[in-house]
Computed example of a mutant assay.
Amino acid sequence: MENNLQISVQGHLGVITLDRASHLNALSLPMIHGITQQLQDWHNDPQVQAILINSNSPKAFCAGGDIRFLYDSYQNGNHNYQDYFADEYVMLNSLRQYAKPVVVFLDGYVLGGGFGLAQACHIIVSSEKSRFAMPETAIGFFPDVGATHFLSRLDDIGVYMAVTGEQISSSDALHLDLIDYLVASEQLAQLQTELVNASTLNQQLIEQLIARHLTTPAPSKLRHYEEAIQQHFAHADLAQIEASLLNPHPEHADWAAKILAILQQRSLLAKQISLKLQQVGRGLSLEQCMQLERDLQDIWFEQGDMIEGVRALLIDKDKQPKWQTENSELMQMFEELLPVSRQQRQASVQV
């Protein structure tokens, strides 16, 4: 089966190139399986000393998950959508735990599942062209693929990114430590050539080669709004955040009005759960965050707004999603998924 990956060994570098440019490299299930399998195949190969993941698209590294596949799977009554998430998380864990250095080159859109894929790599190199976002609330979903961990470490800015789905630049990502290095887009090919020609590859030598190509980042626009983000997105619940945006500092009035308008278009359930995930994620390990996301994914298609969001934006394209106004059952189920709730239930069973 075509898995939309280009695989090669160049020198001591194993290269996995995402090759689904027509879909901005949205991760299909065969792509996920292919990456996992290739990591296994190279694990004991002495020639391959490091891995590079990159893209063949001039527009995107990866625009996220294959949401059309997920929608069709659910509507057809099969469980392929659950298998997709399970296998995606196996891939992410394989990357994080891989014994050899995994480098990723980002040059274009890095969204949703693509953002999670990049965060699972060991050395993250981005060009100035990259744009980053976890835009899931726009389709009635929540930021997953580890965002409960990597965004929650940014505190109020993580809440802002998770709930609004707004894009940030590579300069912003560098400022927030979401990438490791900034290299000019036109230098990435030369950097790859130097990695290929290296007589040996380990993390230290790879980072020394990257250091020769670093470029000065443009000013971070997000940094200008950090104080405003902290003012508005530090509140404990969604209603307080939105009320706060109605009363911004005059300097940030236009920005606040824009952000409030975006929030008001999003699914209420998706916003509420995204906020809660960011809040609880601050106190959880990466493994706990990933498990919480996985458990929530498996109930979201029945309880959440994703099917309606995908219908409105991708299927019928009427852009008029009919979001739920409340779902107390979902909120209760979410509370029971939290690690503390699990421990309490286990303790009550043992008594």
Score class of each variant (00 low, 15 high):
residue 27 L to C: 02
residue 27 L to S: 01
residue 28 S to Y: 07
residue 29 L to S: 07
residue 29 L to N: 07
residue 30 P to N: 02
residue 31 M to G: 04
residue 31 M to D: 05
residue 33 H to I: 00
residue 33 H to N: 00
residue 34 G to L: 05
residue 34 G to N: 06
residue 34 G to P: 03
residue 35 I to F: 13
residue 35 I to M: 13
residue 36 T to Y: 08
residue 36 T to L: 04
residue 37 Q to N: 08
residue 38 Q to M: 00
residue 38 Q to G: 00
residue 39 L to A: 10
residue 39 L to V: 11
residue 40 Q to P: 00
residue 41 D to W: 00
residue 41 D to G: 00
residue 41 D to L: 00
residue 41 D to K: 00
residue 42 W to R: 03
residue 42 W to L: 09
residue 43 H to M: 15
residue 44 N to V: 01
residue 44 N to M: 03
residue 44 N to Q: 03
residue 45 D to A: 02
residue 45 D to L: 05
residue 45 D to Y: 06
residue 45 D to M: 04
residue 47 Q to P: 04
residue 48 V to A: 07
residue 48 V to P: 02
residue 49 Q to Y: 10
residue 49 Q to L: 10
residue 50 A to R: 04
residue 50 A to T: 06
residue 52 L to C: 13
residue 52 L to W: 09
residue 54 N to A: 08
residue 54 N to Q: 14
residue 54 N to P: 10
residue 54 N to K: 15
residue 55 S to C: 14
residue 55 S to Q: 15
residue 57 S to A: 14
residue 57 S to Q: 13
residue 58 P to A: 15
residue 59 K to I: 04
residue 60 A to V: 12
residue 61 F to Y: 06
residue 61 F to K: 02
residue 62 C to P: 06
residue 63 A to I: 14
residue 63 A to P: 14
residue 63 A to G: 14
residue 63 A to N: 15
residue 63 A to W: 14
residue 64 G to W: 11
residue 64 G to Y: 09
residue 65 G to Y: 12
residue 66 D to K: 03
residue 66 D to Q: 04
residue 66 D to C: 04
residue 66 D to R: 04
residue 66 D to S: 05
residue 68 R to G: 10
residue 68 R to E: 14
residue 69 F to D: 11
residue 69 F to T: 09
residue 69 F to Q: 13
residue 70 L to M: 11
residue 70 L to K: 11
residue 70 L to Y: 10
residue 70 L to H: 08
residue 70 L to N: 08
residue 70 L to C: 09
residue 71 Y to H: 12
residue 71 Y to T: 12
residue 72 D to V: 02
residue 75 Q to W: 04
residue 75 Q to I: 13
residue 76 N to M: 02
residue 76 N to K: 09
residue 76 N to D: 10
residue 78 N to Q: 05
